[in-house]
């Protein structure tokens, strides 16, 4: 297993009204290529903070973050922007599509930033849309004209348009109903099967069960991890395995 992303003594401290809050404390972690890594933990454990530090969206207070042996924790804001556009894809709980752009434009705004050959980008986008059943008609619509599930699937296409090394997802089904959630999770699973590295933060068991590795965070440190193996379908043993791990972690 090749490490794609690792942290060494990662610390993140927030200062609020003069009071310092240590969210991540000397955290050491390795994320492996082609894994679907799930980060879980109670509220305030530092899950999202860890994910945004890993993805170069936020800077750590101390410690190192290495992406394929490059220390991104030393990058400037602009270098991090370039890092994100070339290596990362993002799927957010609130989806965050740009309202005033059509579905296709939302994807192309991201794709054309990296690849100057428009035809190639459009072709890739169409392939991805076709994989997640977004029709040509839907591609012309604005996000507000689509359902939450459709919007989140489009957000996944936007995240994958530049063929990122790693796809980050923060509670990707948090704002969706159960049927839409399933559809979105199926998309994640499918891309994972094709070799896409994914890191997802979630509270949701249905999402967590899709991962092959679950890391549990507590008080800013890795408290434990559980290897579930590759997801084929949701079977009882896999669910029990995960529940046992989470119970052990005090979830």
């Amino acid at each position: 297993m090749r490490t794609i992303l690792s942290t060494k003594k990662l610390c993140k401290t927030f200062s609020n009204g003069g009071v310092q809050q240590h969210v991540l404390k000397n955290l050491d972690l390795e994320i492996y290529e082609e894994d679907f890594t799930i980060i879980m933990g109670s509220s305030g454990a530092g899950k999202s903070t860890l994910m945004y530090c890993l993805s170069g969206m936020d800077k750590p207070t101390l410690g190192q973050i290495l992406y394929r042996n490059s220390e991104i924790s030393k990058y400037s804001e602009d270098e991090l922007a370039v890092f994100r556009r070339e290596n990362c894809g993002f799927v957010f709980q609130q989806i965050y599509l740009i309202d005033k752009m059509s579905v296709m434009d939302n994807v192309l705004a991201s794709g054309l930033l990296v690849n100057k050959k428009k035809n190639n980008v459009v072709q890739t986008a169409e392939e991805l849309f076709s994989k997640i059943n977004i029709t040509e008609e839907l591609q012309k619509k604005f996000p507000s004209q689509l359902s939450g599930g459709e919007q989140q699937r489009i957000a996944i296409v936007r995240a994958l348009i530049n063929k990122p090394g790693i796809l980050f997802a923060d509670e990707p089904t948090g704002a969706l109903n159960s049927s839409n959630s399933e559809a979105v999770l199926d998309v994640f699973s499918e891309f994972h099967r094709e070799g896409q590295s994914i890191v997802a933060v979630t509270h949701d068991l249905k999402t967590a069960i899709r991962g092959n590795r679950v890391i549990y965070l507590k008080d800013g440190q890795v408290c434990g991890e559980c290897i579930l193996g590759d997801y084929q379908k949701e079977d009882e043993s896999r669910r029990l395995n995960l529940m046992a791990f989470l119970t052990e972690m005090g979830w």
């Binding site: 922007a81 556009r85 070339e86 965050y96």
Partner: peptide, 15 residues
């Protein structure tokens, strides 16, 4: 604000 934040997230630089 939101749009610019999204664009920053997907890799657009301030410049």
């Amino acid at each position: 604000n939101q749009e610019l934040g999204i664009l920053k997230a997907v890799g657009y630089t301030t410049g």
